[in-house]
Every structure is written in C-alpha cells, then in structure tokens.
Amino acid sequence: MKIAFYGSSLLSSYWNGAATYYRGMLGELARHGHEITFYEPDAFDRQKHRDIEPPSYAEVKVYPATVEACRAVIAEAAAADVVVKASGVGVFDDMLLEGIVAASRPDAIRIFWDVDAPATLAELRAHPDHPMHRAMPALDLVLTYGGGPPVIEAYEGLGARRCIPVYNALDPATHHPVPPDERFTADLSFLGNRLPDREARVEEFFLEPAKALPSRHFLIGGNGWESKAMPANVSHLGHVYTRDHNAFNCTPLAVLNIARDSMASTGYSPATRVFEAAGAAACLITDAWVGLDGFLAEGSEVLVARDGRDVAEIMAGLDRDRARAIGEAARRRVMAEHTYARRGVQVDAILKEEAARKALRSVA
C-alpha cells in the first residue's frame, strides 16, 4: 500500500522523542512491501540537527513551515492508500488533520497515530470544539504509542471506531551493546528533555538521589537542563544524538527511566528509552507505572523505584555483577517479545484487515 505519513520528523530526534519509534515502525512496514512517503515540516531547528540521512525505506519530504507549503503536502494525500496524521507535528496540526481527511480518497484508510495519547486526550476533554472531535467519524483507526486499556476506553468513548495500541519496541540493528565510552562514565544516567510535566519527577527520582549519594556520579542528557540548578555530583551533557545512545546506556552502572506525569498516571506507556536501554543490555531503573510487568519483570529484568528514596537505596546496594545480570535478562526479553519486527507484523495485519473491512463496506 502507498502510505502518506504526516509526522514531526523522521530525520531528526532533536526535541522529537518519536523519532526512534517512527524509524522502527516505518522501516518494518517497508519490509512488508508498503511504499512510504513521510512529510515533515522544517521547524524547531530539527533539520540543523539531523541524526540520519534520508533512509531507503521511506521518501522524506521536508516542507517549509508555511500555510502554502502545508496545503501543497496535504493535497498529496489523495494519491495514498493509507493516510496517517500523527499527533504532535508541532506546526499546523489542526490544518493537517482536517486537510488530509478532506483530501484523502473515500477508499483510503485514514489513521490518527497518537504518540502522546494522555496529552491528546486531556486536550480533547478540555476543548469540545477541538477539530479532532469533528474528524473522528471519518477516521478508520486510532493507533497509539501506548496507553493500554485506559486509552482504548477513552478513545472509543469519544467516538473512535477502533483504537489499537502499538507499543514502542527495539530495533536491534540500531540499539545494541557497545564498548563503554568514557564520556558517559557514571553511576546513574538519565536521558530526557526538560518538559513541564516531567521536571518534578526528575527532581524526585534523579536529583534527590544525587543529593543523598554525594560520592556517586550522576549524568543527565537532554535539552533544556543547562539552566537547572543541580548538585555538584551531577554532570549535564545537553542533547545526546541517537548515534551515541548505545554508549550512553552501556557505560554507566545503571540508567534511569522517568515517565512524564501523564504517562505515569495512565500506565501501559513504556518510553522509547526503556527498549533502547534493554537493547543495550543496560541495567534499567524505572519509576513505577501500571502495566510495566507486561514488558519487563520487576527485580529480574528491571529495577523499580516508587520514589527518590528507592532510587538511592537501589544505587547504594547495586554492584556491577547484579547490574549486568539484570541488563542481560532485559535484553533477552525484549529481543524475544518487543522488537519492531513484531510490531511491523502487527501493523501490517491491521492495515490488511482494515482494507478488507472497507472493501466489504463499499460493496454493501
């Protein structure tokens, strides 16, 4: 099928946490024979911070962040068998949503692919006049990056025909064990951008343990932290490019995952970083959230902290042998159950099933 995919960026992970997800999913869909065109705006300096060159699995069309250019790429939806509007493009989101619904053919599969369902659903509840409410009847599918039963129930309650979670996963060709890199030497490392609904949790789960363990070295990577006051034993790296994620994960004793407020409260929302760390056989410590046991087993494949005191206690008692055993167990689990190859099979089947449904409806 010809897929037109309107998203934030495939080429750059700069202020774009969905990049790894897009790359893993679309690469696998291409292997199933789908022909993909990815439309991304030239916005937020992402094109100046590309992680990859245009890939072989998708044609990437970068368009200026102008109304005229947006209209032009919307018009191209008419040539596609599957039209996808992802959440969080960042510019002209409402225009893109309404435009591609209107421009796509009646027989095309129309999909809203939500990479931040808790935030989107909160916005829909707060704004009864949101364009998504008007677009919902025309959408064949809502696919989500996570969220599980609560998100499915919420979307179906808002009128979605079908809502199906397609979780983050591992691309073992991209994220895998590598030798340690002295740039990333630390006892505990955290990678994530500074965002309003994450900052308080970073203070609790990362900065407070750093204060409690002044003799240990903590390392934080991601955009926005340069102006944040931190303990003397915390080093800040700034943006860490995708090419360095493996070394970032493999080098320290342990790495920390901290969910944003909305993801933690919704549950069933493993971040990309969870699978990147597991793929690198890193010892992962994560904050607690409902549904974690569907991805990794607490104690043997991941260490779970309920608060900052738990993080400090875990770090105080963690040695290299146990960390290595947990990381290797996590890698075995995600390699067996949570690869993008498996997600690609899932989405390919969803598309074929939906095409058959639409064909039957057109005959009826």
Rank of each mutant, 00 (worst) to 15 (best):
Y241W: 14
L26C: 04
F206G: 04
D114C: 12
R161T: 08
A329C: 05
V151E: 10
E156Q: 15
R161M: 07
M230E: 04
K352L: 14
L29H: 04
V255M: 01
G99L: 08
V255K: 00
V142Q: 03
G27L: 04
Q346P: 05
A79N: 11
E123I: 08
C70H: 07
A72R: 14
D51F: 02
N233V: 03
P118T: 02
F248K: 01
H133C: 01
D42H: 08
A58Q: 00
S13C: 06
N249G: 00
V166T: 08
D187E: 13
D129Y: 01
A169N: 07
V62K: 08
D287A: 01
V363F: 12
R110Y: 06
F205S: 03
L158V: 09
L139I: 03
T66K: 05
S227K: 14
P150T: 02
E353W: 14
L143M: 10
F275N: 05
V83M: 08
A312I: 02
A212S: 13
T266F: 12
A264F: 14
K61I: 15
M95W: 12
P172S: 06
L29E: 01
L237G: 04
D140C: 09
E208H: 10
A212I: 05
E298L: 00
F112N: 02
K2I: 11
P165C: 09
V83W: 11
A75M: 01
A229I: 12
F218L: 05
P180G: 11
S12K: 04
Q346H: 11
D116S: 12
A30H: 14
A126Q: 09
I36K: 00
D93Q: 05
I220P: 06
R50A: 08
D348S: 12
A210Y: 11
M1H: 10
Y268L: 09
Y22A: 06
N257D: 11
E226F: 11
R110I: 02
G294Y: 13
D287F: 07
P150N: 04
A271T: 15
G267R: 11
R320D: 07
E153D: 15
M95P: 00
M315P: 04
L96R: 00
G221H: 00
V363M: 13
V178E: 09
A229K: 14
E328H: 08
H32R: 11
L360S: 13
C283I: 03
D287W: 08
A316K: 14
A316W: 07
V91Y: 09
G88D: 11
H32Q: 07
G317Y: 06
G291E: 02
E40W: 07
Y340V: 07
E123S: 13
Y167L: 14
D129H: 05
A138G: 02
A75Y: 02
A126E: 13
A103Y: 03
P55G: 03
Y145G: 00
E68A: 15
G147A: 09
F205M: 12
D197G: 03
R105K: 15
S189L: 04
A72Q: 11
S227P: 02
A86V: 09
A280R: 00
A103K: 06
R134W: 05
R183I: 08
